[in-house]
Amino acid sequence: MGRAAVVRLLHALGVIAVVVTLTFALARLLPGDPFASIADHPSVDAAWRARLRTTYGFDEPLLAQFVRWCGAVLRGDLGYSFSAQRPVRELLAHALPWTLLLSSVALTVGGVLGIALGSGQAVRRGGWADRLTGSTTLVLASIPDVVVATAVLVLFGQRLRWFPIGGATGLDGGGAGDVARHLVLPAATLALLVAVTLARFHRAAMVRGADADYLLAARASGLSRWRIFWRHALPNAIAPTLTVIGVLLPILLTGTIFVEKVFAWPGMGSVLANAVLARDYHVVTAVALLSTTAVVVASAAIDALLAWLDPRTRAR
């Protein structure tokens, strides 16, 4: 067990190293530089921006830059963001908590709702409730996310004015109630989208398992429908669902770009999108570092959970 954990850890570090190195290189190969945002002025020309590149070491060979960057990261320095005008660490310290809050609420609510809906559909398979839920989730899953999010914002924010339009805190706010009011729309939208996806996967997994011989046997032995569901059907269907959740988990750290953009949520998704467009290399690489760590941890956690749920897979 101990040895397996060490192997897993080494693999994880390997994945992180590969992704970060690739991101570092690829981001710098994109055309443009971090100083594009200050170029709409006749006094600012390409020669001046070239001077800035030299000043901040973006002209050095890629390898030299990478070595310097690695050294800095090991000392805990993630570099400087030229688009946000502050050290990357400070920028992430502002953005990360907001994304963690939004994503954890949305994933929890959406996850529970999705599994409940999918299970309910599977238990009452073929009934009107199954069909109604099925068509609703199908339609919702087919509408582009941005349209759903914008429609929610327009209706509840701009028209009804029940909730503030965008942002995470009000002007003189910052208290729990204020944050909650700002959180409702983006979290509900994201939760809805997660729930819709999960419900559809989970129903499929449950239904496929439902014809299994052991369930037939259980039914024949006179066990109650709900007991069969809790004891047999759900645990067997949960593996693929957990895998889907595992794929969704990294948004805990990197957020979802479109929800954050539409609701002007000051989180990591917006940070990443802005940084890529502004060629803010240090930020892009730092976000890749964080998100890879998140993916690796999530993947390990899901594997461990699956193994724990089903001892037979561990045997292999």
Binding site: Q158, I165, G166, G167, K261, A264, A273
Partner: peptide, 14 residues
């Protein structure tokens, strides 16, 4: 700030 101009407009209208 809102990177989407439409959010700024909605804030103004609301």
């Amino acid at each position: 700030y809102a990177s989407e101009a439409s959010v700024s407009v909605r804030r103004l209208f609301a």
